[in-house]
Design a binder for these strands. Structure first.
Length: 249
DNA sequence: AGCACA
């Protein structure tokens, strides 16, 4: 029999936090793609303030996703812990400490430069932070101009760039295979899989390299594909809203 | 395995 175990008496005792800590991520995935995929996958649980991931030796395979509230983080953990992502199962917990973005909003943010060095004796405060690690060469972290908030306004934004998808005159008849359009060109099958997997009857995602921006998603039957279509219609990935129709037979 | 804020 299947019983859902409340995760309370177990080993990992980290108190709820609006930031989740993910590890066991596939280290071969480039940081930029990783962050985008995480955003695409986790924004379904609520507004994301920031996603942090680093490629340094000590922090490979890990990421922090900062939600704007702890409930979103809890849901994300409940739904996504142990979920396969780039062929490895994500391990998700609450982060141990509060994220800087959150602390800054709190007013509780305290710069942590003091931890690095010994405290100077005498009454002198040092407030000059020499930019130190700036020449590591890897500068691709904060590349997103605050666009992580992707989930809620499903029907506000039309098709960015004015690109109109091909809508057939008459809607295609129900099909267990869905046709997805208006995806960001960098969308990976993995991202779509993550989104559609949560619906019963999910079978597979197919994308065509030569035709970016579209995908086919197969379900076991058309009842199930219909539920998924309704659930994800207009879902925003990055800037784009997915347009889902039945595939032509 | 590894809990940061480039």
């Amino acid at each position: 029999m299947e019983m859902q175990e409340a995760n309370q008496g177990g080993g990992s005792e980290v108190s709820p936090n609006q930031t989740i800590y993910i590890n066991n991520l596939n280290e071969k995935v480039k940081i930029d793609e990783l962050k985008k995929s995480l955003n695409a996958v986790f924004s379904q649980f609520g507004k994301i303030l920031e996603i942090l991931a680093f490629k340094t030796l000590k922090h490979k395979g890990q990421a922090w996703v900062v939600f704007d509230n702890a409930d979103s983080a809890s849901t994300a953990i409940a739904k996504m812990n142990d979920f396969p992502f780039y062929d490895k199962n994500m391990r998700i917990q609450y982060a141990k400490t509060k994220s800087d973005v959150v602390a800054k909003a709190d007013g509780t943010f305290v710069p942590r430069e003091k931890r690095k060095r010994h405290e100077e004796k005498g009454g002198k405060k040092k407030k000059d932070h020499h930019h130190d690690s700036t020449q590591m060469g890897m500068a691709t972290n904060s590349a997103y101009p605050g666009v992580y908030g992707a989930a809620p306004p499903l029907s506000q934004v039309p098709y960015p760039g004015g690109v109109k998808p091909n809508l057939p005159e008459a809607p295609a008849p129900p099909n267990n295979i869905l046709f997805v359009q208006n995806l960001p060109h960098e969308t990976t099958p993995m991202v779509l899989q993550m989104l559609f997997y949560q619906y019963q009857g999910f079978k597979e995602v197919r994308m065509v390299e030569a035709k970016p921006g579209i995908a086919f998603v197969e379900f076991a039957d058309e009842m199930q594909s219909t539920v998924a279509m309704q659930g994800l219609q207009g879902f925003k990935i990055q800037q784009n809203q997915m347009l889902i129709t039945y595939a032509k037979k």
